[in-house]
Amino acid sequence: MLLDIQNIDVLYDDFQVIWDVSLNVKEGEMVALLGPNGSGKSTILNTTSNLITPKKGSIKFNGEEISNLPTFKRTEIGISHVLERRRVFPHLTVLQNLNLGAYHPKAKEMRQDSLEKIYKIFPKLSQREDQLASTMSGGEQQMLAIARGLMGMPKLLMVDEPFLGLSPMVTKDLINIFKNIVENGISILFVEQNVRLALSMATRGFVLESGRLVISGDSKDLIDSGEVRRVFLGN
């Protein structure tokens, strides 16, 4: 098991948002984290990055307990987190953004290699190396954010709402890119609201509702599940 989250409770100050959630990702697997607005999907990713520390429960990565490891040390052990709404550095160039993705010493050493690989996956970025990130379109910024995450040479790539605001064309590109990444042996855990789209890509899915895990399993079982339909559409 690459990522193994067990029975975590998460609180913002005194306000509990996650109750007893368990979730796992195997090596080389694409997993979707589903749920309506405000169900706690992003919080799960943020907890895995320790942007917020869980009150209870354990988070293991490659078998090691990491719930107290500071955020900035997590890229080094192989977790890359692409935050919601891209969050590229607007006043830095594309290349500078990418270089910052390879910040820890191991990734820094391999920077040139990673860059070449990434330009193969995202050819557009190589043409835009010297452009400021803020001048790119939303879709390009999303590509940059994901490419930046890959520069850290992760074993697990967590992506928060990757398809938000993307055109159908770009969405299609991104789906292929995700498949490509997984074929290269990197696991992906992504958050998505579009159930059909997410389950068509992922091998497994976890469905959250109001901070609790309601159902999880293989995509093909979830896609026809009445429970999933109830969560998203009501009774």
Binding site: L51, P70, R74, T75, R87, L100
Partner: peptide, 19 residues
């Protein structure tokens, strides 16, 4: 560069490994 990144988006920089 890391300094600039932190000033532009502290959380995004932290997630990339910038303390």
């Amino acid at each position: 560069l890391a300094l600039q990144a932190t000033s532009q988006d502290r959380q995004a920089a932290e997630v990339l490994g910038v303390p």
